[in-house]
Design a protein around this nucleic acid. Sequence first.
DNA 1: GTCTATAAATAGATAGAC
DNA 2: GTCTATCTATTTATAGAC
Lengths: 227, 227
Amino acid sequence: MNLTNQLVTRTGRRSAARGRPRGRAADGSRDRIFAAASREFAAHGFAGASVDRIAATARLNKAMIYYHFRSKAALYHAVLGDMFHAVAVRVADVAASANPPDEKVRQFVAAIAAEAEARPHFPPIWFREIAEGGAHVDSVILREVTGILKTLVTIVDEGVRRQRFQSVNPFLLHAGIVGPILLFFASEPLRARLARKGASRSVANIKAAEAIAHVQRVALGILEGRL
Amino acid sequence: MNLTNQLVTRTGRRSAARGRPRGRAADGSRDRIFAAASREFAAHGFAGASVDRIAATARLNKAMIYYHFRSKAALYHAVLGDMFHAVAVRVADVAASANPPDEKVRQFVAAIAAEAEARPHFPPIWFREIAEGGAHVDSVILREVTGILKTLVTIVDEGVRRQRFQSVNPFLLHAGIVGPILLFFASEPLRARLARKGASRSVANIKAAEAIAHVQRVALGILEGRL
DNA sequence: GTCTATAAATAGATAGAC
DNA sequence: GTCTATCTATTTATAGAC
């Protein structure tokens, strides 16, 4: 978990896969806190999250959280940074590949979806952060967010240069990809309830691959001027 | 404000536009609480919202909140119910109109957007509620949510019957409309910051009409089989 | 690294005067 | 309808022993 979490602990050591505290066993208490916090922040938001509950879920006492992270805000920042960094790296890999532009767009969509599936806390936390107007997005994280958008712009520009894509507003394209994908993954519990309460089964029984393919077609439909 | 808020107060009277307490002046203390609560829940979520802050914003003391609403949960429920009811009514009007199916789809999109513009707390609160898996969505509100989805299904079915639309998964269509629209409105503060920090101006300077037209084209592109 | 105990502030909610 | 005062639980955070 959180292999990309390279943030430095209070003691100045790194705790992620690369650069563990030298000579010490990988007990994983920091990682347990990180995982518990991810779930707590996703379920209750920053203000609603309880450090007590995070400690209980991590099977540790509260003091350990303040030992590994300076504050509740610092812990949230670590989770947020890890999340956006992972997405930014993943989509950057897509843009750097040798594939044609249309394939890169498909992979961009798949990358967002893969990250949403790998980190169930990612769609809820992103939604919540948008709801707060990015109140906890500092300049470091803002750079990651900008990077994700810029990567999409790069892919689109390449397609336009090769006369395969029309020029479109990058944020509208982005919203048309990220909005539905995050909504699909985050709404799973609510869709299950809707189906139980008599809504058509087709609301709950959607395979991730189906949703991804749908959004890929939409994105390419926009870019290839079929709308 | 909250003209559709027909929920009953603790004293059993109705306080909305229709059915005010008989013989009493419309002082609006309940409406001030309602408005302050909408902003507070949008900004901090249910768990993170503070009854003290709501009271301060409404220029009233805390006891007045418990006089008009039974509890913090009941207050949140009132805001949530009002919101979804307003959307459900608005889209139902669209479906009941005499317009052809493609125009109904355009109006469905416009209705969601109009509601998001009229109630700035609506996109953040909906995003947050999805993030919580609908933890505060009781059977009453679930019916409203189901109603919104069913309205879209009705419109699509009519188009399919008239051989103007292809058959599509209703939730994927819904996610392709609601996801981008809510993301567009809710992300406005974050997009403004992105633009200030060097991102292209085209990220922040998007007119609502432009975003709406974009989503309308996408929705019709899906339904008319151009993808 | 891990723990218990606790400080200090704030939370939601109520009682009761006017 | 509106207020002040207050109860109790919970909050984030720290001190200090081991």
